[in-house]
Nucleic acid binder design. Structure first.
Lengths: 214, 214
DNA sequence: TAGATTGTTAATCGATTAACAATC
DNA sequence: TAGATTGTTAATCGATTAACAATC
């Protein structure tokens, strides 16, 4: 069924569908047509139907989609029915904030460990998880079957840490370090480059001013 | 010169070019061809030339591109030659961490204020900036000519705050709240939806396992 | 000048939208 | 059954890549 390659453009839209369907579910909505959903999400009904049909038919002609069922199915497609153990590497301001913020246990993401090189931080706790020495990282990732590493370290140390993670079986990295990571295929990377986001905003501000406030 | 509309796909690549050119500059590299840059960045030389040519010819036949000049020009295109005042709204863990982390003064992004509803936080400082009451937000944005708001508040309060920001002339929002913001055209939004990023990783992990570890 | 490499046009590829027959 | 809406094929649009003449 799920044989042919799905484009990342489609994957990138799944979490948003999942969020809207969750809201509909909470509102007690039982069924929804691609047209109604398209109005709510500001995308075309055609795209919605194409996207869903990448994974097989979830709807019913003349009826639409059952919200509860579709919500559940998209969650399953996203792999949210499985648990994912994650660690945070770098217990600076951002790393500790994410430890408190990434509270996605109900989505199956379990915060298992946090690491830093700074002796002063080691032993402190973040949401009940003890900050460990970087020395323990490799064994921990291997033994505790960590899938995902959230990387909040300076760019210069990133590459070395990534090598260690890869060597010990990491499957994915959420990268906040401002470098492009080199990983073998099979290791997934999502970059969160906040300065890039700010620069895009800056460009679009300038463009808007140039075009509309001459 | 910069008349025709540039696609967001191109804009999205500019910060990365900017970063690589900055590195080349720091390495003392004087000139680079689209082919050399393509090898370094793992994109096609053709795309590089097309992208740059959206903004006019920066290169020279038979020579390539002057690194220093191109770096400077892309910075200018991104609007980094202008100052952008920003505030952070929500002084929770994430907001405070970003106050310390978004240290982009040298890129022209100036941290001017941080706001929260929590009486206990008001008066504390984040990188020398005092946490203010949300009551002061509207006047501050208006009087201090704030361009950019970094939004780290619970999703339920996001929409109300966005209205206030828009009313007082905000130009762009970096949105960490897990909702789609409704803004008039002319207000730029970049979303940083960390749970969406985790879900994409989850999907790609599942897919890789399904296809390669049957 | 000869060689290199851009700027730019043309070809290809992929993603989005439109249309409609199938069917609930 | 008639009406509604999907699933899917076809048409369009836009973005990427290839090719090459222009030119430094």
């Amino acid at each position: 069924m799920e044989a042919k390659e799905i484009s990342q453009a489609v994957i990138g839209r799944l979490p948003r569908y999942f969020r809207y369907l969750g809201e509909l579910k909470d509102e007690g909505v039982e069924r929804i047509s691609s047209h109604e959903l398209s109005e709510r999400m500001h995308v075309t009904a055609s795209q919605i139907r194409q996207d869903f049909n990448n994974f097989g038919g979830f709807g019913q002609q003349g009826y639409g989609y059952n919200v509860e069922y579709l919500y559940h199915e998209i969650g399953r497609i996203l792999g949210l029915d499985k648990e994912h153990n994650f660690v945070i590497i770098g217990a600076g301001n951002l790393g500790r904030a994410l430890g408190n913020y990434l509270n996605f246990e109900r989505r199956g993401f379990v915060f298992r460990g946090i690491f830093d090189v700074d002796e002063g931080l080691i032993g402190q706790e973040v949401r009940g998880v003890r900050i460990r020495s970087m020395e323990e990282l490799e064994e921990f990732v291997r033994e505790e079957e960590i899938d995902i590493a959230v990387l909040t370290v300076p760019k210069l140390s990133a590459e070395g840490i990534v090598d260690k993670l890869v060597k010990n079986g990491i499957r994915a990295i959420l990268n906040f370090a401002h470098v492009d990571l080199n990983v073998p295929e099979g290791v997934q990377v999502e970059n969160v480059h906040l300065s890039d986001s700010l620069m895009k905003l800056s460009y679009n501000i300038s463009r808007y001013i140039r075009e509309n406030e001459p």
